[in-house]
Simulated assay, not measured.
Amino acid sequence: MALGDSDIAFALELFEPLGDLTTRRMFGGMAIYHQGVIFALLRSDATLLLKAEGDFRARLEADGWDRWTHTRKNGTETSMPYYIIPSEVLDDPESASDLARASLDSR
């Protein structure tokens, strides 16, 4: 499944309050950067994820966010440092941008 223009426009609009966004297509999806630093992924199925490390990761896990797990061709699962953004955040660009700032600050 490939990303549509409307999926990309939605993701960029959601994080627009950050300013200075760039993107790079990869693996059928897209990476989203702020000032050259990756903070989010838009998967090919249009699921939007936020990168989290350290205390920010602990915060998202405490809040019940689902971590992205990928199943490899050999059947093993690996967890990625990305969390699926809940629907209530997808409706609020200010909240999404605040969380994106926290993601960027977590490194």
Rank of each mutant, 00 (worst) to 15 (best):
G36L: 04
D98R: 14
L12R: 11
A31K: 08
G75K: 12
N74T: 12
G36Q: 06
W65V: 02
F39E: 00
P93M: 02
M80A: 12
L48A: 05
A102R: 13
G36T: 08
S6P: 05
T47F: 14
E61N: 04
R59Q: 05
F10G: 01
N74A: 02
L50G: 03
E77K: 13
I38R: 15
M1E: 00
D105F: 14
E88T: 04
Y82V: 05
L49M: 09
D105M: 11
D20Q: 08
M26I: 15
A52V: 12
R67I: 07
F27R: 12
P81V: 03
T47V: 14
E13V: 15
A58T: 10
I8M: 06
R67Y: 07
K73V: 14
L48I: 11
W68T: 12
R57E: 00
L12Q: 08
G36K: 06
T23A: 01
R57N: 07
P86R: 06
G28H: 10
R59A: 00
G75T: 10
A40R: 02
A52S: 08
L42G: 02
F56N: 00
A102G: 13
L18T: 04
E53P: 08
T76F: 11
T22S: 10
F27W: 11
L12N: 06
S44Q: 14
A52H: 09
V89P: 04
L41Y: 12
S87H: 08
F56Y: 13
L104E: 00
V89F: 05
L18F: 11
F56A: 03
D5F: 13
R107T: 06
T47I: 15
T23Q: 06
P81G: 01
E61G: 05
A46S: 10
D63G: 02
M26C: 08
T69A: 06
D55H: 13
A46K: 13
P81S: 05
T23D: 00
E16P: 06
Q35K: 15
S44Y: 14
I38M: 10
R25W: 01
I84F: 14
L3P: 02
Y33V: 01
I84W: 12
W68Y: 11
D63P: 04
L41P: 03
K51V: 09
L12D: 03
R107A: 02
A2M: 00
V37H: 15
T47K: 15
L21E: 01
P93Y: 05
R59W: 09
I8N: 05
K51T: 10
A11P: 04
T78C: 07
P86N: 02
S44A: 13
L99Y: 08
